[in-house]
């Protein structure tokens, strides 16, 4: 079943801090397809992506995520990633001190290894009472066998191979090499963060990529570069789900389906024309058509308070 790279989201309910945000989402995404998810602010788009990636704060209370023929509801985020799921975050976090290069080299190594069951850590502890007693042989530092063991365990992709992959992807996204020497998102501008997310996707070559507003905050040229870059990366194997508020980035992609998410539910689906209609007319008409009451925030926005 492992080469069945479909993602099936079945009646997914998700809580954030004990409040239900998603009320039964259904989606079916096949390799090679391009999907778009649109919806007003706060409708649950990022919640869906975080739940898919396995963020611990987003709790699936019922329903299923099925990927490669298996329910992955309880799989850790890293195992999902190693299977080929990717999320470009709406607000990527900074991790000071961790260089892009170092981090991505480890990430790519793991991605290539694929999903493996979590390693059982060797236990160095004897437990006496309820307090561990540390094995005295194990010095905190020093020149015994520990270092060698460590190196053996970590067989990272060679720096040479990694550099050439990185270079190719940097070119594709017209990014300067200096980004990769910097700390992950640390001091990056909003637009730079977005591009770094897409760079990570390009390097890791996922099968199922969710891009949560990859275009927000980007200047017009950058949207084109990112749009063309994503388009170049997709192939028969790779499905792409773009969450966006704007039409522009979609013009670089061959969109198959558009889904409209409102108040935690998918309320309307269609082809590329649907995204154009929304760009033109907003969401009011969909609410009217379906008889959905706007939330307080939505009302305020529409009357312009």
């Amino acid at each position: 079943m492992a080469d069945n790279n479909e993602l099936i989201i079945r009646d997914l309910h998700v809580n954030v801090e004990d409040k239900e945000i998603l009320h039964g989402i259904n989606l079916h995404i096949k390799p090679g397809e391009v999907h778009v998810i649109m919806g007003p602010n706060g409708s649950g788009k990022s919640t869906l992506s975080n739940a898919l990636m396995g963020h611990p704060r987003y709790k699936i209370t019922s329903g299923e995520l099925v990927y490669q023929g298996e329910v992955i509801n309880n799989l850790s985020p890293d195992r999902r990633a190693r299977r080929g799921i990717f999320l470009a975050f709406q607000n990527p976090l900074a991790v000071p001190g961790v260089t892009v290069t170092n981090f991505l080299r480890t990430a790519l190594t793991n991605r290539r290894k694929g999903d493996v069951a979590p390693e059982v850590r060797p236990q160095n502890l004897d437990v006496v009472g309820d307090r561990p007693v540390y094995e005295t042989k194990k010095a905190s530092v020093g020149g015994d066998g520990l270092l060698i063991d460590r190196k053996k365990r970590q067989t990272l992709i060679s720096p040479k191979e990694f550099r050439s992959i990185l270079k190719e992807k940097l070119n594709l996204l017209k990014m300067d090499e200096k980004f990769t020497k910097r700390y992950l998102n640390d001091g990056f501008s909003g637009g730079e963060k977005k591009r770094l997310e897409v760079l990570q996707m390009a390097v890791l070559e996922p099968r199922m990529a969710f891009l949560d507003e990859p275009d927000s905050g980007l200047d017009i040229d950058a949207i084109r570069i990112v749009g063309e870059g994503v388009n170049a990366l997709r192939g028969k194997e790779m499905a792409i789900v773009v969450i966006t508020h704007q039409q522009r980035i979609l013009s670089f992609l061959d969109v198959d389906y558009v889904h409209v998410l409102m108040q935690g539910k998918i309320v309307k689906e269609g082809g590329p024309e649907l995204s154009r209609q929304i760009e033109e007319k907003g969401y009011g008409w969909i609410r009217d058509e379906l008889g959905i009451q706007p939330t307080q925030e939505e009302t305020r926005e529409e009357v312009g308070v």
Binding site: G54, P77, L87, F89, L93, V95, G97, V98, L204
Partner: peptide, 29 residues
């Protein structure tokens, strides 16, 4: 920061690899 761990995990690093990397980064400066 649990969100930092999640961010690194979402790229395929195990929980302990993510923790190692964040601590190493903390000292790296």
């Amino acid at each position: 920061d649990k969100d930092q761990i999640f961010y690194l995990q979402s790229r395929g690093l195990s929980h302990s690899e993510a923790e190692e990397m964040i601590v190493a980064g903390f000292f790296e400066e």
